[in-house]
Computed example of a mutant assay.
Amino acid sequence: MPRHPRNATPRHRERHRTDRVGWLRAAVLGANDGIVSVSGLVVGVAASGASASTVLITGVAGLVAGAMSMAAGEYVSVQSQADAEAADLAVETRELQEMPDSELAELTQIYTERGLEPGLARQVAEQLTARDALATHLRDELGITEALRARPLQAALASAAAFTVGALLPIATTVLAPPDRVVLVTTVATLAGLLASGGVAAWVGGAPVLRGAWRVGFWGAMAMAAAALVGRLFHVSV
């Protein structure tokens, strides 16, 4: 059997979650919005005295419109971030070509301000510049890393898919629940779904599960209460 040197340091593997930020944010937002918005439509229309078929059609229409809206909004938003990153990349590329000495001095100053001795900061800046000057400036000067880069298409697809999955919950309750119990069943199922969604999102992101679950559940309950109130105020069959 091979023997390891006595002074060998075992490799330490760390699990970080920053690479999940882009799709996780879009997925959590989409799922919660799908559950709350479509549930609000179903509960509000059902509370007004509408027929079961009207409630179901309203829920399906809300799913389609909401998924498209979430995808479009997420794409435009994240694309704006991607455009800003691309502009910064172009500026840094040009400055590295035209003013390499100034860029090296700027990088040295950054490392000095972070606590390195000036001589060591200069040495680190030179070595990192020789390896990949552009990536070094993007990361240490602008805070742009590959893990956190804007990915518009990924965010749009994740948001739309998550919205659809979330919206299927209130639609399923509309189909399965007795007509006179749609409001009650949908409300209970929605709160359960929101608690589960918040807990899973917190777990994936490394946050306390119970805190994430109750945070999402609370605001979902407020939305459901508001929707039911509107439906009862305008107690009119559609």
Rank of each mutant, 00 (worst) to 15 (best):
A87F: 12
S37W: 00
L233V: 13
G220K: 06
A161W: 08
T174D: 08
W214L: 15
T136I: 01
A225N: 09
S51Y: 11
T187R: 07
W214C: 15
G49M: 07
P10Y: 05
T129G: 01
V36M: 11
W214G: 15
A46G: 08
G217V: 05
P10F: 00
D101L: 14
A155F: 09
Q109N: 14
G193V: 01
L89I: 12
A46L: 08
G217F: 05
M99Y: 14
R17L: 12
M222Y: 04
M70S: 00
A227Q: 07
D132Q: 01
T108F: 03
S159D: 10
R232W: 12
A46R: 01
G212S: 08
R114Q: 15
A50M: 01
A162I: 06
T93W: 00
G193F: 06
E98L: 15
G34C: 02
H137S: 05
E126A: 14
I57Y: 10
G44C: 12
A67C: 07
E14M: 14
Q123F: 11
A130G: 14
G143I: 05
G34Q: 03
R15Y: 13
G143R: 05
G66Y: 03
T54F: 09
A67G: 06
A72Y: 06
D88P: 01
H235Y: 11
A65E: 08
V165K: 04
G115C: 09
V238S: 12
G119P: 03
A87V: 13
W23M: 12
M99T: 14
E74Q: 12
F234V: 12
V183A: 00
V124F: 05
L89D: 13
T93P: 07
P179K: 02
G166M: 01
G193P: 03
R11E: 10
T145C: 02
R15E: 13
E14H: 15
G198F: 04
V28R: 07
A196L: 15
I35S: 04
F163R: 02
N7E: 14
R151Y: 07
N32A: 06
Y75I: 09
T187F: 12
R3A: 14
E95N: 13
A227L: 09
P179Q: 04
A147L: 14
A84G: 10
L169E: 04
T145K: 01
A167S: 12
P179Y: 01
L107M: 12
G143A: 08
A52D: 13
S69P: 06
T145N: 01
L194W: 07
A225I: 13
D101P: 03
E146P: 08
I110A: 09
A26M: 00
P118N: 09
A52I: 10
V64R: 09
G40E: 06
T54L: 11
D88A: 13
P179H: 04
G199V: 07
L194S: 03
T136L: 02
R215Y: 08
V38K: 04
D83P: 04
A71S: 09
M222A: 15
L233K: 01
G73I: 01
P170M: 05
T129L: 10
